[in-house]
Amino acid sequence: MSLWTQSIVSGLLSGGIYAMMSLGMSLSWGVLKIINLAHFSFILLSGYFTYQLAFSYGWDPFAAILVCVPVFALAGMALQWAFDKLRVSEFESLLLTFGLFIIFESIASTVWTADFRRMDTVQNPYQSQSVWLGDIALPVPQLAAFVVAVIVAFGTRYLMEKTDFGRAVRALSQDRDVARAFGIDPHRVAMRLAGLAAAFAAIAGVFIAMSRALWPGLAVEWFGIVFSVVILGGLGSTLGTLIAAVIIGFVGGVATVVGGPPMAPLAIFLVLIATLLFRPQGIMGRSSI
């Protein structure tokens, strides 16, 4: 019984990391119409940066956020600037970022090799710490990721619904020309949103580095989970993404208990198929951003 509860709780908690990884992807695809595979590279590289800062300079992994967020936000903005200059379509964005993804992956395997990289307990004291809820352990990195993901999701929702920036983004997601007619500079708004999306990727990378070992092929493994979350949540929907991430985490957790770890991707894939068959607009639909 306790194994069940423990696995399901860990599954739900890993929903926090999934949400953190998926939020930026969902915004980018839903609003900017860019399917950004380089998003996965940002997460991976941010993870490696966190590892390297801890390994070389003894930084606390949480402190890595201070470096990773601005670095990747800038990278995301630069990328969006290039997309706007080149006027890429949704499909071209997929291909272009696929090219970038490959480049980043080979850079990662050149710099950090194909071996597993993991911070030890001195560099990353959090990985062995847990908050106990009765006899259920909540590992600190996952718990922190979950809390941050919830804050970020609600924060983004507030940003989208209550601020001028959010209104501009919503106008942009509907029609670029109309947005322009209302005095909104689509390029600037798009760049800022891309920066935000990349910052989320950076945060996700930090938490991933805190909770597991890194290797360059990891990024490919995320494709299935993140796209399941994004589609289940509904493109561009922040709360939808959060809920979907928790559902996917839960499903993965249950599947792991029932059939072992390899069962998780299969179960998640079945959820994705079911979503596409019965509710292709996702749980929150496209209209609510």
Binding site: W29, I35, E90, F91, L94, V220, E221, F223, G224, F227, S228, I231, P265, L266, F269, L272, L276, P280
Partner: peptide, 13 residues
């Protein structure tokens, strides 16, 4: 788009 992503996920599954 969904076809593309589906085919991306399917190898992993």
């Amino acid at each position: 788009e969904i076809f593309a992503l589906m085919t991306l996920a399917v190898a992993f599954v």
